[in-house]
Structure formats: C-alpha cells, structure tokens
C-alpha cells in the first residue's frame, strides 16, 4: 500500500466517522442526563429523509439541514414525552422510534416522490460541497505535510469540521459549565439535583433536545453530504454503531472521538477490501468487518473490561411525596 492509498483510506475514515461521531455525541448528552436512547438510528434516518426531501424540493441544502433537525427533534419530543413526562420505558420508546422512522420515511417518500421509497438525486446547492481549506492547493506538492493537509484535512464538507469541533465543545460544556455539571448530576443522582432546586424534567428535556439536534445533523450529513439523496434504511445500523462507540468510550467525549474514528476506519476497510487484502495477505470477510465494532464492544467491555453507564440511566425520576 502506498502513501496515497493510505491517505485515501484515512480520508474515507474521517468521512465515515462523522455521522457516527455526531450520533455518538448526541447519545452522550442524552445518556449522561439519564435518558437511554436506542432511537439514535431512527432519528438519523428521519433526518436523512426529510433533509434530502426538502433539499431536493427547494434546492437549498441549508433548508434541508433545518428540516432534518426538525424531523429528528419531533422524534426526540416523542421520546421525551414517553420517557420523562409519562415515565415510560426508555428502551421501548427508542425501539418504537426506530420502527416509526423506518416505516414512515419509506411510506412518505413513496407518496411524495414515487421512486420506490427514495428521494431524487441531489446535486449542486442541494448538497453540502467539500470545502478546500486555505493554501491547500498551494501546499499540495509539499511532501508529506502538504499532502496530508490537502488530501486528509482539507476537502471535507462543513459538517465534518463541525462534528470535530463539537468534541471539545462537548467536553467544555460537560466539564466546565454549570449546565454540564447539572446534566451529569441528573444522570447520576436526580434526587440531589431536585433537592438543589433545579428542575430534573427541564434538564432532561434539554439533553434530549440537544440529542435531537445532533442526530438531525448526523442524518442530514448522510443524505446530503456523504451521499446524494435518501435511500431506504440508509442509516444502515450507524445509530447502533454510535451506541457501541459510546459504551466503548465509557460516555466521555474525547474517547467518543477515538472510538468513532476507529469504527469509521473499520467501515473504510470494509469499503476497500482490495487494499486490506493486499496489506494482510488474505481476504477478510466484508460482513465480518461490518459487525466488528459490535464484536469488539462485546468482547472488550463485556468479557475483558467493564463499562458502567450513568447510575440513574434508564430510570424515570419520581419526586418523593
């Protein structure tokens, strides 16, 4: 494998890690506040559909992004109502949301576009275009650093940079602001937060809303940046891989970045099985690579290590009378 191929692989890793990272951070806010969210997948899918649909109708990708966030938020509100207001089972609510999105996207896509459950192909302003960072062209021929800058760092859509930026932002919000402290507290010991006079319900809804926004961006990225349009079930388990990454990262932002990059790299490997075969000398089964994140998480956080989530995760808060 030459250097150019390696750069290509890493470039693909970054592109494929972005939706995972956005969804993983989304889950991080929600689960840190004590709300399990296995509905990441569904929210991404709904956002992917609506963003592609609106972008294709209006020709404006930013309107598409907004619509995607809206779709994801709507499902987040359902999740919030079910798991916070009505103290229902958060896991069951997540399952319902995943199916709701899987079904509704196809039913509505068929009704709007009659293309067998997909949206029309997006092009031009209806898609996020790659951005060339300053001086990338000029530095292109500088060996090593210039190549890395041009091939790997430059030339991504704005959402990739946004996702990367969100990692330090999330760290800062969680560990350096009052809101973050309360958010983490409400996931560990909601009664203490309540005693301090801070609204548990309000904090949890805020966390679920942030989760909705991030999943919306993740979904919009899938349909308007990574690919050009919505296709049935296009989230393809990414919501679950993001969940796996979240556990792998033990619910911490910087580790979330590294585990998403790792899982993104595995996906890039699955796409370039020819390169993998060349390097390791034998063909790896593509199916196996697809589920390797899950196997890794089961083995490493199940058998070898241990990953314990926020203490109050999954439990509805009931004020004692």
């Amino acid at each position: 494998m030459d250097f150019a191929t390696l750069l290509q692989m890493l470039d693909a890793t970054l592109r494929l890690a972005t939706p995972l990272l956005l969804a993983c951070l989304a889950g991080l806010y929600s689960e840190r506040a004590g709300i399990f969210d296995i509905g990441l997948e569904g929210k991404m899918l709904a956002a992917a559909f609506l963003s592609a649909a609106i972008a294709s109708v209006t020709g404006n990708v930013w309107l598409g992004l907004l619509a995607g966030i809206g779709a994801s938020m709507a499902l987040s509100i359902v999740h919030g109502l079910a798991s916070i207001t009505f103290r229902g089972n958060q896991l069951i609510s997540g399952v319902a949301i995943n199916f709701l999105a899987a079904g509704l996207t196809v039913v509505v896509a068929q009704s709007w576009f009659s293309q067998g459950g997909r949206t029309p192909q997006l092009s031009g302003d209806a898609r996020f275009e790659p951005i060339t960072l300053p001086f990338a062209e000029q530095l292109r021929d500088v060996p090593l650093l210039g190549q890395v800058y041009y091939e790997l760092i430059s030339g991504h859509t704005i959402l990739v940079y946004l996702a990367l930026l969100l990692v330090p932002v999330t760290w800062w919000v969680l560990y350096r602001t009052r809101f973050g402290l309360r958010l983490r507290a409400v996931g560990e010991n909601p009664a203490a937060v309540d005693t301090a006079g801070v609204s548990v319900v309000g904090l949890r809804f805020a966390a679920v809303a942030i989760c909705g926004v991030l999943c919306g961006i993740a979904g919009a990225y899938l349909a308007t940046a990574l690919q050009a349009g919505f296709t049935k079930d296009m989230s393809a388990g990414r919501g679950y891989i993001a969940l796996a990454a979240l556990i792998f990262a033990k619910w911490r932002p910087w580790y979330a970045l590294s585990s998403c990059i790792l899982f993104g790299f595995l996906q890039a490997m699955a796409l370039r099985s020819d390169v993998v075969e060349e390097v390791i000398g034998f063909a790896l089964n593509g199916q196996l690579l697809d589920v390797l994140p899950f196997i890794l998480v089961v083995v490493l956080t199940g058998f070898v290590g241990k990953a314990t989530g926020p203490k109050a995760g999954g439990q509805a808060y009931v004020k004692e009378r």
Binding site: A82, R87, V95, I97, F99, S114
Partner: peptide, 28 residues
C-alpha cells in the same frame, strides 16, 4: 394500492409506542 408494505412497520411502531412507552399516558 400504492401504499407500500412499510405501512405495517409504522403500525407496529405505533403499537409499541402506545402499549409500551406511552402506557402511562392512557393509564394515569
């Protein structure tokens, strides 16, 4: 009809939502 099969998944999701997650909405 032109209604795709996925409508069943929507119905399935709504059943899970109302009988499972939103149980208290009806119960309370």
């Amino acid at each position: 009809t032109s209604i795709p099969r996925e409508l069943i998944i929507v119905i399935q999701a709504l059943v899970i939502l109302f009988t499972g997650a939103l149980d208290n909405m009806v119960r309370m």
